[in-house]
Design a protein around this nucleic acid. Sequence first.
DNA 1: ATTTATACGGTCCCGCCAGG
DNA 2: CCTGGCGGGACCGTATAAAT
Length: 301
Amino acid sequence: MLNYRQLHYFWVVAKTGSIVRACEQLNLTPQTISGQISLLEDTYGLPLFRRVGRQLELTETGRQVLPYAEQIFQLGNDLQSMLRMAPKEQQILFRVGVADVVPKSIVYRLIAPTMELDKPIRITCREDKLDRLLADLAIQRLDLVISDSPMPSHLDIKGLSQKLGECGISFFATATLARNYGENFPHCLNGAPLLIPGPETVIRSRLLRWLAEQKIQPRIVGEFDDSALMQAFGQSGIGVFIAPSVIAQEVMRQFDVELIGQTEAVTESFYAITVERKSRHPGIVAITEGARRELFTPASD
DNA sequence: ATTTATACGGTCCCGCCAGG
DNA sequence: CCTGGCGGGACCGTATAAAT
């Protein structure tokens, strides 16, 4: 059994950088701490510190051990401060996973309503590929996943998809690019360099189908799974890129690009995926209600 | 430049004490 | 009684400054 007391002393010494400073923090004498750390080292036969002059320095093993200790005791500290708080002030942990396909400012606008809850909330936001997020959702390491597609049916995970809303898409280009391809939308896109979302996205096939229907053949110069990456390339003037129309103003301002056209024929939808649970997380409620209230054209289902 | 004094950080040995 | 954790005091090696 791992001796957490010894590990704790190790952690404090490693963090403060010396036994003496650890003593002040722990209200112990150097012998005690030194002795306990030695015992820990002996248990596994691996030195954690190297004596360099008068200082202590972490060994390679010590450096490997430290992040574990860090997690263990940081979590412990979080637990304590949570318990010490009055029940009314206790923060609600809200862990959100965001598929990297989803544009950042959409994410922000979706999550923003949770900040206005009367209970203090602490949001953890992680961005990743959808399947990995869903895996974490399944083992309850996430409360909610925001994605551009509903819960895939082929996965054997219990999940509840809720459509947050949908909207048309807008095309953007830098001023230089817009001079050449900015007239007579959407036919100006013919031959225009275009950045498109990657094969994992839903919007991609809708976009390509629409372009084909319009008999428009752009020159596809890049594919991106990550919307932020696509915008960054778009900002540099490599090609025309798209974003949901609801954030058109923000995109133009943020990336200093011009709007060359909008269409409602291609829509992008956003979904909140949760695990089925009796008690609904207040953050989830805030997001779904907030999305209905202000963000998109009302969702049909 | 070398020696000496002092301070500092860590370790070793030993005895104490509480809990099983 | 044994064990784990603790502190007191002695001790060692090193850094820094002062004296020679």
